[in-house]
Design a protein around this nucleic acid. Structure first.
Length: 893
DNA sequence: CTGTCTAATCCAGCTTTGGCAATC
DNA sequence: TGATTGCCTTTGCTGGATTAGACA
């Protein structure tokens, strides 16, 4: 069962397109990043985004990504969204009242969330994720702003500038200056000096080479920058965080408060409304820890280093865990959580109004992990280095260092309390594109890891006839709007995608060696406990347990034998075997006895009666395949077909047709047999269930083999005759319709003659006369041409004389329907069963799949797909696909 | 942190031979 | 008048899979 379905899809619908990787060359990044655009304010940004989207939308076909983030902005587009328009997604009418049931109420009442509540959370989650993505894209664009860069660059003290220079030289990005500089490391200085002594040729080459003797020089620089940033940047506002779902009343008051009160960062969150304000925060070097990370990214970019703004989204979830339940943000003195709990955050605002003395760790000090950080790409190695400028004690995680990278993954009780999660980690590049980098930060890079329960899981979308699924990745689809085109992938992309972003396969636990647990045994494919056997499973007689397992502890400990899965047999009731053409061998003892499942009224009554008499639930035996054998009916004698108590013969599989008999699965054969006076029995090929009844499905008859040819010939003759009758009838009907039409026209003509009026005026009037308009429309198939068909020239059969006759399109005899996938599977004799091929050799073709149309030569072109086209086109001799008939019980003659 | 147990939901699959009225 | 056809309804229960949460 796919537990979380983001958007219901009709199963018949095509799976989401997997393409849309390649983007045209003129792809527009979601927004402008050019320096010239640096004056744009926030209000411009969405516009730019929408522009970008419009381009995308026109580029992509009508694909699912319409539900990208733009839907969150422009509701008009939703109408065109195919997924949203899926039939199952109807408007939900929600009545939310103040005393709305809250999560805790649900849990107290021991009632899980309903399907609709789940859907609401899923939709909320999806929307929130997209909003956050969009928000981050904007912040990323701001972090790319040249004025911000300038501000940050100007603030750099001399020491840092020198470090930058040192790095540039060490990375081979810049030639060392001829004279050794004092702040340079001795080594570099020496090297530079040395170079002077070298030949001209080597002098040119060597300085351009990076010096990797101490690892990537950029790491040193980053560490310096982080130290600088931690010293300089002051956290003066709360950042983003996950609060959980609030009761509607609380939500309402929070929204009202947000709208009507003067903006207070501590109550309403930090607000940076425009790029100008962002520049101001850069100038002041203060803001939330999130903005700190964004500005740090800007700083790194300002130094000419490729840097990505990474965001670990903290969206509202879709589950019902504690993590999704609203708890107010703890007050700044984190210790007093109780105090602030239940009260609105505003209560503790006043006392903390003034800037605190301890500069950092004041806001969000309960959040042990960053949600924004920076990924720096080394220009030398193309490796990505993760940098957290403010929070973590190990701020720099080099490429490939799984342990240090996993430090970014929220875990532990503190993170849980603060509702910090990892589900989607997205890195925004300076060119406006973004990519998902969650894998890098997962412990052991193993999915789903801690994302489980917080990230939309892959949705199984059925494809093909049955049992085939493809995985639909909702987030992947959302990210397609941000991703860099495949062909513009950089060396950095390629390197990380082949290494850091390659997920590890979760190692499979070998149950053979590790100690048994109830769970491991339950899921094991190798071993099984007797209590885990399914209803229709039984142990092979004489199966020996391979070991014992002790379940429970102490006094409740219980020893249970562990069996091999290989010793488990699939069992069926005698009736079920019968349906497969098998019967229990004489003397077979049921391997298992299970309660009877009665479906039909009659069986139910029987079971109830037995239950009343014995006081126990009646059981039925289940047998394994080994305990059964093919039902081999005795050969027929003297052309007489044996019949069961209902007067028909069971033909669930070909082998059930007795030797010397043949199954003719054609409709109406009963009448033909009667006419011919040959013995027959209606063939029951399966059952249909409905209205507490099992109704046999009858497909033709079983007759003696020697009568088969006779029957088929007679049937064909009869079918031809029937077809002819129908054609005549159709012709008659068509003529009648024409006649009526002609009369109508004549009447109209006469009315016009008698009551006058020129035709143009009539037409004028008609345009206001709905009846006339309607009539005109009806005439349109004839092009409104007044010319009457010639009685001789029109061909009633080919064109229906211009009229569609009732029954024309649903003519059973004419329509070829593919019934290959029908429940019964067996639609006629075949040579499938090698054991009993001799029983089936009375027929040499697969009648049910023959195509062709007895009535119409022109309008049916649907082929059965059987490939048997012997009679195709002739019409006269073809046998139609047999539509099995549900029938009532008919006592034998 | 892992495992066990319980409760709940959802879904797939098993189920095995009517009755009455209208029409031919 | 008897035979044939059409319509009714679209089961309904059970067990398995899965999830979540409490608790050890």
């Amino acid at each position: 069962m796919p537990p979380f379905v983001p958007r219901k899809r009709v199963s018949s619908e095509d799976p989401p397109p997997a393409k849309r990787q390649a983007r045209p060359d003129n792809f527009q990044a979601p927004f402008h990043l050019s320096d010239s655009d640096s004056d744009s304010s926030l209000s411009d940004a969405p516009e730019d985004l929408n522009k970008g989207n419009a381009t995308q939308a026109s580029e992509s076909e009508d694909e699912e990504e319409d539900i990208d983030w733009e839907d969150a902005i422009d509701t008009k587009t939703t109408a065109t969204t195919p997924t949203v328009a899926a039939p199952e997604l109807q408007d939900l009418e929600l009545t939310l009242d103040q005393n709305e049931t809250h999560v805790s109420d649900l849990l107290d009442g021991k009632k899980g969330p309903s399907k609709i509540e789940r859907q609401i959370r899923i939709q909320t989650h999806c929307m929130h994720v997209q909003c956050l993505l969009f928000h981050n894209a904007i912040r990323n664009a701001w972090s790319n702003d040249s004025k911000v860069h300038e501000i940050l660059r100007k603030k750099l003290p001399e020491g840092i500038r020198k470090e930058v220079k040192k790095w540039r030289i060490a990375s081979g990005l810049e030639l060392p200056e001829p004279k050794p500089e004092p702040p340079k490391s001795k080594k570099k200085g020496k090297k530079a000096q040395k170079n002077k002594d070298w030949s001209d040729e080597s002098e040119r080459l060597e300085p351009g080479q990076p010096d990797m003797s101490r690892g990537d020089p950029i790491i040193t620089l980053i560490k310096v920058l982080v130290a600088y940033w931690r010293k300089q940047f002051r956290i003066t506002a709360p950042g983003l965080r996950k609060y959980g779902y609030r009761p509607v009343s609380a939500l309402e008051s929070a929204i009202t408060d947000f709208r009507e009160e003067e903006h207070d960062p501590e109550r309403h969150g930090e607000r940076i409304a425009s790029l100008d304000e962002f520049r101001a925060t850069a100038e002041r070097m203060q803001g939330s820890r999130d903005v700190g990370a964004q500005l740090f990214t800007a700083l790194v970019r300002a130094l000419g280093i490729e840097a990505r703004l990474v965001a670990s989204l903290q969206p509202l979830g879709f589950g019902w865990t504690k993590g999704e339940t609203y708890t107010p943000a703890p007050s700044k003195d984190t210790e007093n959580e109780e105090e602030s709990e239940g009260s609105e955050p505003e209560t503790d605002v006043a006392e903390n109004k003034r800037p605190a003395k301890n500069k950092r760790k004041q806001f969000d000090s309960d959040l042990p992990f960053p949600i924004y950080w920076t990924e720096v790409a080394s220009p030398v190695t193309n490796e990505i280095i993760s940098v957290d400028p403010l929070i973590l004690s190990n701020p720099v995680a080099p490429f490939g260092d799984t342990d240090l990278q996993a430090n970014f993954e929220p875990r532990g009780a503190k993170a849980e309390r603060a509702k910090q999660v990892i589900c989607y980690v997205v890195a925004h590049s300076s060119d406006g594109t973004a990519k998902e980098v969650t894998t890098r930060y997962l412990r052991r890079r193993t999915w789903p890891g801690k994302t489980k329960g917080f990230r939309m899981p892959l949705e199984k979308v059925p494809v093909g006839p049955r049992g085939n699924y493809i995985a639909f990745d909702w987030f992947g689809m959302v990210m397609r709007g941000y991703q860099r085109a495949r062909k513009s992938k950089t060396a950095v992309d390629k390197l990380e995608e082949s290494r850091d972003l390659q997920p590890n396969q979760p190692e499979k636990k070998r149950t053979t060696q590790t100690a048994d647990t109830l769970q491991s045994l339950r899921t094991s494919t190798e071993f099984v406990l007797e209590r885990f056997l399914r209803r229709e499973e039984a142990l092979r007689p004489g199966a020996e347990p391979v070991r014992t397992f002790i379940a429970g502890k102490g006094a409740r400990a219980k020893e249970e034998p562990v069996f091999r899965r290989a010793d488990v047999l699939k069992c069926l009731s005698a009736e079920s075997w019968h349906k497969e053409g098998r019967q229990t061998k004489p003397g077979a003892v049921a391997l298992k006895r299970v309660p009877i499942r009665a479906v039909t009224l009659i069986r139910k009554r029987e079971v109830d009666e037995m239950h009343r008499q014995t006081g126990e639930k009646p059981l039925q035996g289940l047998y394994s395949r080994d305990q059964t054998e093919y039902i081999v009916p005795p050969p027929i004698q003297d052309g007489r077909i044996p019949k069961n108590e209902y007067g028909n013969i069971d033909c669930f599989v070909p082998s059930m047709v007795p030797a010397g008999a043949a199954h003719v699965p054609l409709p109406g054969t009963v009448r033909v047999c009667k006419k011919l006076g040959i013995d027959y029995a209606e063939a029951v090929t399966g059952f249909e269930f409905g209205s507490k009844m099992a109704v046999p499905v009858i497909q033709g008859v079983v007759v003696a083999a020697e009568n088969e040819g006779l029957l088929r010939d007679a049937w064909k003759a009869e079918a031809a005759e029937k077809r002819k009758r129908e054609e005549l009838k159709a012709e008659k009907k068509i003529l009648q319709t024409w006649r009526k039409f002609l009369f109508g026209l004549r009447i109209m003509e006469r009315v016009r003659d008698e009551y006058g009026g020129d035709p143009d005026a009539d037409r004028e009037r008609d345009s206001h006369n709905p009846f006339a308009v309607q009539k005109k429309r009806k005439e349109e198939p004839d092009d409104g041409d007044e010319e009457m068909p010639d009685r001789e020239s029109y061909n009633a059969i080919d064109h229906g004389g211009g009229f569609l006759l009732p029954g024309h399109e649903d003519d059973d005899d004419g329509l070829i329907v593919d019934h290959h996938d029908q429940q019964q599977g067996y639609a006629g004799p075949s040579h499938k069963d090698a054991d009993h091929a001799d029983h089936a050799d009375g027929t040499d073709d697969n009648e049910p799949f023959e195509s062709g149309c007895p009535t119409a030569d022109s309008h049916v072109s649907i082929s059965s797909g059987s490939g048997n086209e012997v009679d195709n086109g002739k019409g006269e001799d073809s046998e139609p696909e047999y539509v099995p008939r549900r029938t009532r019980r008919t006592r034998g003659p």
